[in-house]
Amino acid sequence: MKQLKFECPECGTEFTLTANQTKAKERIEALKKAGVDVSELFAMQSADGLEFIASKRDGVISILEEDDPIFQAIIIQGTIPNRQLFRRWVMAQMFRIIYIATNTHGAYKPIGVSEVIHSMGYEYQWKMLNNELYAQHKMMQNGDVDNFRDRNRWFNKRVVLDMAKDYIEKLKKRFDELKLRKCKGIPYKRINGQNIFVDDFDKKVIKPLLFAVHKIQHSENTYELWHSVQEFNKRRIKMHWDTPQNAAWLDAYKGSGAFFTMQNMIRFHNCVIIDDNGKTLGKNASLAFLNKKAKLYENREGWRLIGMLKKMLDDNNIDVVAKMKEWRK
């Protein structure tokens, strides 16, 4: 280790730190692969050629020391237990859904996973989709190809188009079933507080939505897809809370939730997979087996991973209720 002194060219702050020959860019890449947001990190090099990692946040530059806990955690297990990571939130959400779907609550009968997700309401799928596409766009901006691939497997242009077309069909059906009214002899219907003449429905409501679908279909990158979905949402008339969610979205939601939950259990909770032949796999083999199954089920069969998740919970003696109580602490 060597003592280094330098002055920041931007703010004039003088630093003294230790550094070694480890490549700073490689360490940043390791952080990125572990799921850490590295958008504020950058590599710096002294006149001697020694490298270290600096972070700039709110105009203040700081240095990640050699014994930083993040680096130590990566060295020990290859990943880091960051509670703010997306996959941590997904795991907690899936445990809650599974608990509700299996707990009898006394005299009440258990409900299925689909029914629990349905209870979140129709509009939830659009809010969730918008956040997901924005996150994917930021990943591509930051060059986080691995995490983008895992998440885009489930929520992608194919799913978005299915959702949009399904919404238009549901809207048409809803409008057809509305009570017919008349204003000076001209028929109209009232939907979500809006009065729409029957003759104007296709021209003023449906055609703008179809134009937005066209933009979704021809989006060429993550920004265009996210932005075109925002445009579609601005033109949408909100649906009733109990309107059935889109089947493609529901499958993607189940597949994504189960995939990231199992990935998280393997990485951070010492869980393993027992494969189709009854063989207990190690950590790396378990992750490889999970990725293989995810690829197999990524096209409208993500729901199968829910069964795989439940089996994994049983195989590893994971008590969902106990885990939820542990996280509440």
Rank of each mutant, 00 (worst) to 15 (best):
S219Q: 01
I266Q: 05
D144C: 00
H105G: 03
T18Q: 14
K295Q: 13
T104W: 00
R267H: 10
V320K: 13
I168K: 12
P244H: 04
D315L: 09
N152F: 03
M324S: 10
L309W: 07
M265S: 04
P69A: 02
F201G: 11
C183F: 08
L64S: 00
A135I: 06
L4H: 11
I216Q: 01
F148L: 06
G185S: 04
N277I: 09
V145W: 02
V159E: 05
K203A: 07
F15E: 08
K170G: 03
K182V: 09
K5W: 07
V320R: 13
F260K: 15
Y188S: 05
K5N: 13
D144W: 03
Q77K: 15
V159I: 13
E29K: 15
N147Q: 11
Q230F: 01
Q230M: 07
V198A: 02
Q136P: 14
P208V: 02
L290Q: 04
L4G: 05
E224C: 00
K204N: 09
I318V: 13
I191G: 01
K254E: 08
F232I: 07
L313S: 10
N270K: 15
K203V: 12
Q3N: 15
T104L: 06
L290Y: 02
F71A: 09
V320N: 08
I97G: 01
R153H: 00
L17V: 14
N277Q: 15
F197I: 10
P9Q: 09
R57T: 13
I70H: 00
K109I: 04
S114I: 05
G121L: 11
K182I: 02
S228Y: 01
I76Q: 11
D48L: 12
M308T: 07
N291F: 01
G255E: 02
D200P: 12
I97H: 02
N130V: 03
F95N: 13
D166H: 11
M239W: 01
S228H: 05
W249R: 15
P187R: 06
S39P: 06
K109Q: 08
K295H: 11
M140F: 01
K204S: 11
D48N: 10
T102P: 07
D37K: 15
V205R: 12
N270S: 09
S219G: 02
N270G: 01
N299Y: 08
I76T: 12
S119P: 15
H105T: 11
N299E: 13
V116Y: 05
F15A: 10
A107K: 14
V116I: 14
V113Q: 02
H214Y: 02
N291D: 13
A285V: 06
G185C: 08
T102K: 15
G278R: 14
K325A: 11
G78C: 10
E14G: 07
I74K: 13
R149L: 05
V36I: 14
E7M: 15
Q77M: 10
E224Y: 01
F95Q: 15
V320C: 07
L171C: 00
V213M: 00
Q93Y: 05
V198K: 09
N284E: 12
I273Y: 04
I97C: 01
K203Q: 14
Q21T: 08
R57L: 08
F52S: 00
A92D: 08
T280V: 13
A47V: 11
I80E: 02
E66I: 14
Q194K: 14
